[in-house]
Structure formats: C-alpha cells, structure tokens
Computed example of a mutant assay.
Amino acid sequence: MALSELRADIIAFRHYIQSERGLAENTVLAYGRDLERFARWVVLVQLPQYLKPTLKDLARYVAFLHEEELAPPSIARHLVALKMFYRFLRLEERADATAVDLLGSPKLWERVPEVLPPTAVEALILAPQPGDRFYLRDRAMLETLYATGCRASEVVNLKLNDVYLDSAFCRCVGKGSKQRVVPLNRHAVAALRSYLVGTPDEGARPAESATEVFVSKSGRTLTRIHLWALVKKYCKRAGLPKTVSPHTLRHSFATHLLSGGADLRTVQELLGHASITTTQIYTHVDRERLKAMHKQFHPKGGNASAPLPPPAPLAPENEKPPAA
C-alpha cells in the first residue's frame, strides 16, 4: 500500500466535508490532523491494506492513541473522524461498509492486552547485538521498558537525575506529572551502567547530551516514535509479531508480576494507574494462576479432572434419624 494513495484519499475527504457537507474550517482542520495521525500509524505498523481494516487492526489503533496519551474526548474525536472517512470511502466505492460497522462496534473497546511470554521478551531484549550502531543504548532501553513497566513517553523522558543505579531504582514522571518510584532489576542496572560508561562506538551515551538518559548519537532527546520504530526493528529481528509495541512490554511486565504472585495493588502502584479498575484488565490474561490459587486454597479445590467420590449411602426408610 502506497502512502501517497492514503494521503490522496484524505485530501479528497477534506474537500468533500468542506464543500459538500459544509463543515466549519476548524472542524475540517481537526479531522485532517486526526487522519494524518492515522496515516502515520499505518506506515509505522506497516498495515497491508487500509481499505479493509479488521477489528484487530482498529483495536491496535485505539491502543496507539492511548499510548500517545490523548485525552478520552480526543480519542473519541479521532474515531469519529475515521468513521466519517470510511463512510466517504464507501460512497466513493473504494471501501465497503465493514469498516464503518467495526468502528461502531462496542468490541473495539473491549481489548485484552497483548502479552509476550518471558522467553519472547528475552529474545527481544537480546536482539540488539554488539556491532549494531546503538547496541548499548537500545539494549538498555529495552531492559528499562520491561524492568519498570513504564510507558514509552516515561522512558524517553527519563532524566539522568532520576536514575539511582547504586540503589537500583528510578523515579518516573507519569500522566498528570505524577511521580512514582520503580525498582530496577540487576539486568537493567547492568545494561544502563554499560550504556552510561561505554564508548560511542558501541552506542553509548555521548558526553555532551541533553538531560535525558536516552539520546541520539548527536545527544538529542528521543521521541516516542523513535522508541516505537526501535521496538519494531528488533521485533522483526527476533521473529516476533508485528503487533508488538513498547506498550506490549508494559502489559507483559504487569502480567508476569501477577503470575509470579504480586498483588493487584502493588502492580497498580508500579504502573502508576490512578484507578485499580485499569489494572484489573491484567487479571483476564492470567486465568491459570487463578485456577491454581483456587485449587490450593479452596476446601474443595482438588483436581477438577479427578472423579468425584461416590455419594454417601442413604439411610433405610425404617431407620430413624439420630436425635438432635
């Protein structure tokens, strides 16, 4: 799919809603910006056919909007713009009604997070190899993402003054400028040390740089889009699905903690969720642990596949029950 084709459709759509629908200029500009974001996402995830998106494709786009830290009203407007765009494409006989129907489906919001098994996470983290241009930086970024469960924006904005390697923790600034302290495991500490003291030839941090931890070769701050592109690059190298994103490591971090026995409140605090309701989505992907806990602690947990004991024999009809 050529990007030029999608951009041509967006231009035609803007002309349509302005000239034929008579929408206000500000509305036309806002919808145009929303669809430009969609076009960038299509290129980022290499969507093969934007004219026939699936529910899974659209759910991935909704996840991307959340990762961009857009407010709920802004996300809703993006989806309205996309729905109008696909209605226009249907009028032009370039797309069928399926996309419009999917954008109105409640299932679009009922997303179960994608989670990688620990072996796949390890493969992704080990994908940057010595000899790569930014080997030390990229390995440290991936280790930090998984060790902390931070959002992409929190990782790229992480300041040197907020990293305490001797004490193995970092201070993250999340949504609403709320701060939280997150531990760093020994793998992340080792990777960060190597990145901060290594040589530029290995992809270490340049001496003259911005205040952020992770920077470009010229010392400039990275963006969320840079981080997305890096994860996609190493996913391809590790043979992982194209759907994996920086947020997948955040989901995996939370799920693996719950699988290991962490309680929901602790995971909520580590993720920086304002409400535990948001954290509860991870309980849906850890059913095996729930079954194991039930089996261990319920008086009649036992083995669900084991045959039930035979019922106790009934007392003869002429036998009186024992006195109370």
Rank of each mutant, 00 (worst) to 15 (best):
M1T: 05
M1H: 13
A2T: 02
R7H: 10
A12Y: 00
R14Y: 03
A24C: 03
R40Q: 08
R40V: 02
P48A: 12
Y50Q: 06
K52V: 03
K52A: 13
L65C: 04
P72I: 00
I75L: 01
L89H: 07
E93P: 08
A95Y: 04
A97N: 11
P118N: 05
L124N: 06
P128I: 01
Q129F: 01
D132T: 03
Y135N: 14
D138F: 10
Y146T: 05
T148S: 08
N157D: 14
L160R: 14
D162S: 15
D162K: 06
V163D: 13
Y164M: 12
F169C: 11
V181D: 10
V189P: 15
V189Y: 15
S194P: 04
G198E: 11
S209I: 05
S216T: 14
L230K: 06
K236R: 15
R237I: 14
A238W: 11
G239D: 09
T243D: 06
V244N: 00
S245L: 07
T248A: 01
L249I: 09
L257T: 05
A274F: 00
T278Y: 00
Y282C: 04
V285R: 03
E288D: 11
L290H: 09
L290W: 02
H294E: 03
N303E: 11
P307S: 08
A312Y: 11
P316I: 00
E317A: 07
N318D: 13
